[in-house]
Amino acid sequence: MTTLAEPRHAQPIQRNVVARVADRLGGGLVQVFMVLVALFWLLPTLGLLVVSMRGETDNNSSGWWTLFTKPAQLTFDNYSSLLASGFGSSFWNTVLITVPATLLVIGIAAMAAYAFAWIEFPGRDLVFLVVIALLVVPVQIALIPIAKLYGALGIFGSILGVVLFHVAFGLPFAIFLLRNFFVGIPRELLEAARMDGAPEWRIFATVVFPLAKPAIASLGIFQFLWVWNDLLVALVFADTENQPMTKALQSQMRQFGTNVDILAPGAFLSLIIPLVLFFAFQRYFVQGMLAGSVK
């Protein structure tokens, strides 16, 4: 491995040696470059974490990196005062919005995807093309009409309204993803079950659904993250008592400078669960992302 060993091989491969040294130098440069890039990508999040764990006066007087020379600055006061201020309820709202919105999308989309994949019906291809078209429809289009609709239904501001909105806008991607998975399931499995006289809903529940676990996991993590991280829908449809963390934090942005001691720990709390999920289920995350490069 070491370059020192090279001279023994003498002349014939001289050029090779040169090339290899150049390679190794280049390789070293690549290493350094990539380390720098990785640091560059880590730095902002690290900064948020550190800022969230320093007192207000420290944050106002010096940069967060001084923590590393003065570890005494470390404190959890921001977190305890944030939780004392009622941030916990918006955390809970986020959960109440995200979990149903994710489960509903999975269930409804799986049924639809099953129909697209395994039940013949007239106009199926056309309807599926409509679903693909809906993939890229911006949510902005629905804000005003749905606000009106919710007003008429009396669910404006409620968690239910936010959940339904997320379910509807999660469906095109979910159906697209699951349908493409379902058509890959060997037809023999279904045929066998159908031959045994199993009703269609049972085939769906006992044959297709279990096989589709990886796809459902991908869909689940994606939908979860979208809803958990959403700001716009909550901004329009959730009133103050039902607001998720993103909206609660957004309302503090106006006085960013003086509210850093709330915003930094709040933002960090809001991203900790997605981050844990991300690390736990990254393979599904990647798969969903590869699948979802259309939205």
Partner: peptide, 8 residues
């Protein structure tokens, strides 16, 4: 960063 909300 893909997992982090755009707000964060």
């Amino acid at each position: 960063p893909m997992a982090v909300s755009l707000l964060a």
